[in-house]
């Protein structure tokens, strides 16, 4: 069953040019997707458009059969789409715990909120230890974990992660990708955008190659990884 369909979406910022120039793709339940492409291809813009931070100029975003292109970000969040933004998007002067509370901001029931925090602490025990520390004092890897943990507070149907390995040392990046792989085991649908295309595709089922606001190629992640043309154009030589 398709969870999300992006249909012919065109989008851009302010009065600027189109960053997305008519994109269409489909996300199926329970799979992991990776969008790759060079800088400026519109990868982050696509995620922002899906979660409502940016309104599409044309086309629509359909989620579980409902057109969500004109909903507010909080309304889209309520339907189960969470974004972990680039550079984490944490609240630097709030504690780890307060950041998690903010992750569950739209949950009004205190008990459910507390329960959610405990569950997230079980997945990321290190965050429990750091509970009363301010987010800005965490290491890069811990910050990325906190950002993902915060998104998990709402138990999203669709989790979108923008550049999870950005600025992380290889070992930490590997840990983050392992965590992403474990989300799949939990049955979550995950959509990641990743500069490090090889790593991103390695944890994904399906890949999209985006360039200059258009889709260039899509296919099984393993096939993309093996395709010589794509390797040359978008993955960089080994």
């Amino acid at each position: 069953m398709s969870l999300l369909r992006v249909e012919n979406v065109t989008a851009g910022y302010g009065v600027g040019p189109d960053i997305l120039a008519g994109i269409s793709f489909t996300v199926e339940v329970g799979k992991t997707y990776c969008i790759i492409g060079p800088n400026g291809a519109g990868k982050s813009t696509l995620l922002k458009t899906i979660c409502g931070l940016l309104r599409p100029r044309d086309g629509k975003v359909v989620y579980m059969g409902e057109d969500i292109s004109h909903l507010r970000p909080d309304q889209i969040l309520m339907r189960g789409i969470c974004l972990v933004p680039q550079e984490r998007g944490l609240f630097p002067d709030m504690t780890v715990r307060e950041n998690l509370v903010m992750g569950g901001y739209i949950i009004k029931d205190r008990e459910i909120l507390e329960h959610g925090i405990n569950q997230v602490f079980n997945i990321f025990p290190i965050l429990k230890e750091r509970g009363s520390q301010r987010a800005k004092t965490l290491s890069g890897g811990e910050q990325q974990m906190l950002a993902m943990a915060r998104a998990l507070m709402l138990k999203p149907e669709l989790l979108m992660i923008d550049e999870p390995s950005l600025g992380l040392a290889p070992k930490l990046a590997r840990e983050i990708f392992d965590t992403i792989r474990s989300f799949k085991e939990l049955g979550m649908t995950v959509l990641i955008v990743e500069q490090n295309a090889r790593k991103g595709l390695a944890v994904s089922d399906w890949g999209y190659v985006l360039d200059l606001g258009r889709e260039r190629f899509e296919g099984k992640a393993s096939e993309i990884l093996a395709d010589e043309r794509i390797q040359e154009l978008y993955l960089g030589k080994k």
Binding site: C51, P73, D74, L77, P85, L90, F91, P92, D93, M102
Partner: peptide
């Protein structure tokens, strides 16, 4: 502290 992130969490 982070207006964009505040929007993201609803």
């Amino acid at each position: 502290q982070n207006r964009a992130a505040a929007q993201i969490v609803g």
